[in-house]
Nucleic acid binder design. Structure first.
Lengths: 254, 254
DNA sequence: ACATATCGTGCAAAAACGTGCAGAGTCAAG
DNA sequence: CTTGACTCTGCACGTTTTTGCACGATATGT
């Protein structure tokens, strides 16, 4: 057995069982403990594992950069996400906005779904990679630190290439007279542009946005095709916005 | 038996069993060990395999199923990342590739750095958001599931808008004669395009890539301005690639 | 604190290595 | 057909790497 092979075997044991006991391995491989110890020392020098008395353990998993921003997600948002995801048909091209609710949409797309999702949010895109049969496209541009979406002239120019069947857009204000609004002008521009190019426009509407108005208009109600709300918020939504020519799609509950 | 035939046989053994032991093969084929060793040396020179004491193993790249997940980041990559990050000057526009080593570059950029980083990898972009004073831009396109970068015609078209001062590019093969290579043609195209548009091109070179050749060329050595390596790998790098007109930038150690 | 297991280092034998060289085979020009 | 240049292969020889063992030092557990 080649020494290189032996080292690979050691790393493989480590990743499978989480630890190495020098004596056991030396028996299994039919070489002396000294040899195993030497191998372990060299691997440790290369930082591939951590040497301990009696054997070795995996190197400290201090680097867990994932989930660096533990997104606060509420049950309501998850419910909306599930309802929105259920509207996606195979073969469609769908635009998905950024934000926590849109992330919930991504999380609830059924596996094996065969369609194309376009997004301008890197963390939504990362979440979508979970789905093996999905085509994911990212719209580039300058990345906004707070909302984790791309915006700006570049993003707008890029968007011009897409004509999605449907889009799911987040908003911070949903007011019967003031329309759909959000708090950042750049983001509002992107959302406007997406809605203008989409076959149908769905707003992800968590209940705390009802009746609120933010500084920048995304769309009037005439431009919006549907509102996705939780079951608990259905009545409130209908009371406030039901007279508008805009479908209200409520989740069936948990 | 012809030497060419023998070499094919060697490669076939390698792909089947994952390693070659010179003595065994020489016995099976009825030729001397010297001949096998010569063959192995030549194949290694061409980057088709990696020579080790006692025989040969596959060149360290794509076909390592279990290492893919476990070896997310090694100390060597972190070291390279730190060295690369230290080369970024305030005010510069820098392109950062995708991949684990590039991610380490992102992690090691000092806070308060005022420059612009362009990347086609959403997870690198997410990491860069840590830096409050940095401007981050994403190059859009179709997202590759495996490598987590965007590629394709859209990405290439978009790249045309950038002229970075410097770029940091990952690769899976670094061979004195075969140049810089990687395992996916779409990714190779993007890397090529970036290098062509950058003031200077730096390759993130972890040691297991030395002497390896992958299927698609990224650049010849003439097009590359520098190689970033760990301290431990500096001598190997100089020995193998030092004669090329290409700077070797070693980290100062941990 | 003491017994036991494990560790690191120095050392020597064995295995594998690279290199130079010579014989055998190949091929093309004369 | 002969000759000479060339390549491929195996062998000899000195060098390097790997490996197992001995021995004193260090860590672990009761």
């Amino acid at each position: 057995m080649l020494s290189h092979e032996r080292k690979r075997h050691l790393l493989s044991i480590l990743s499978k069982t989480g630890s190495i006991i020098a004596k056991d391995v030396s028996g299994d491989l039919g070489v002396s403990e000294d040899t195993i110890r030497r191998d372990l020392r060299e691997l440790a020098r290369g930082g591939r594992l951590k040497r301990v008395h009696g054997g070795a353990v995996p190197v400290a998993t201090a680097n867990a950069p994932f989930e660096r921003r533990t997104v606060l997600s509420t049950p309501e948002k998850a419910e909306i996400g599930k309802r929105a995801a259920s509207m996606i048909e195979p073969g469609q091209v769908v635009f998905l906005d950024g934000g926590t609710t849109a992330l919930e949409v991504a999380r609830n797309i059924p596996s094996q779904m065969r369609s194309t999702v376009v997004t301008h949010s890197p963390n939504v895109a990362m979440e979508l990679l979970r789905l093996e049969t999905l085509t994911v496209e990212i719209v580039g541009g300058r990345l906004m630190r707070h909302s984790i979406v791309t915006t700006g002239a570049a993003t707008l120019a890029w968007l011009d290439r897409y004509r999605p069947d449907m889009c799911f857009i987040g908003a911070t204000g949903l007011h019967p007279e003031q329309g759909v609004t959000t708090g950042d002008s750049e983001e509002a521009e992107v959302k406007r542009a997406v809605i203008a190019r989409s076959g149908s426009a769905m707003i992800l509407a968590s209940s705390e946005k009802f009746g609120a108005v933010s500084s920048f208009e995304i769309a009037s109600w005439a431009e919006v095709d549907g509102l996705i709300v939780s079951k608990a918020a259905e009545n409130t939504a209908t009371g406030l916005l039901g007279h508008l020519n805009c479908g209200i799609y409520a989740s069936s509950g948990r």
